[in-house]
């Protein structure tokens, strides 16, 4: 896609916006439509679009596959960690009341934010991992030979 100059410029511009939008969706998820899952997908889309328009190597320079793997795991840790933290405060697993003991509904907000963040990170990681897994597969018959 070296000659699609418009596409390249626009993509470069859009990527930032997509990421920004992802963050919006991420942090407003508990009040408006959206949430961690959607935010994660949108976030991944930014990188995927970049990889599609430029190429895989370029994308992997920005976001190496290794990092994507770890992100996927990290998100789960954030999610689970939230539960563990609530346990440390002497509450049951994932009882968000722990985060603001005097005011459970505020604690609820904090808890959901943390959990959704975990979901978002994991989804980003997984989407990218799947994308990389498919695209980096070397076909046994190269395109030219068809």
């Amino acid at each position: 896609m070296q000659h699609h100059i418009v596409l390249r410029v626009v993509t470069k511009l859009l990527c930032g916006l997509i990421v920004l939008f992802a963050f919006y969706v991420q942090f407003h998820g508990d009040y408006s439509p959206g949430g961690g899952f959607q935010a994660g997908v949108i976030m991944a889309v930014a990188f995927i679009a970049y990889a599609v328009v430029f190429n895989l190597e370029m994308a992997q320079k920005v976001m190496p596959a290794r990092v994507a793997h770890k992100l996927a795991a990290l998100g789960v840790l954030i999610y689970g960690g939230t539960g563990v933290v609530s346990m440390l405060f002497g509450y049951t697993f994932l009882d968000y009341g722990a985060f603001q003991p005097g005011h459970p509904s505020h604690g609820q907000h904090w808890g959901i934010l943390a959990v959704e963040l975990g979901v978002g990170v994991t989804v980003t990681g997984v989407m990218l991992t799947i994308f990389y897994a498919f695209t980096s597969r070397v076909p046994s018959i190269s395109d030219e030979e068809w």
Binding site: F93, A98, P104, S105, Q108
Partner: peptide, 19 residues
């Protein structure tokens, strides 16, 4: 709802075993 209750009993490690 569950979150509207004030939690007054701290769970010990022993109580947390199932999870």
């Amino acid at each position: 709802m569950a979150t509207e209750s004030v939690h007054d009993v701290a769970l010990t490690l022993h109580d947390q075993l199932p999870i």
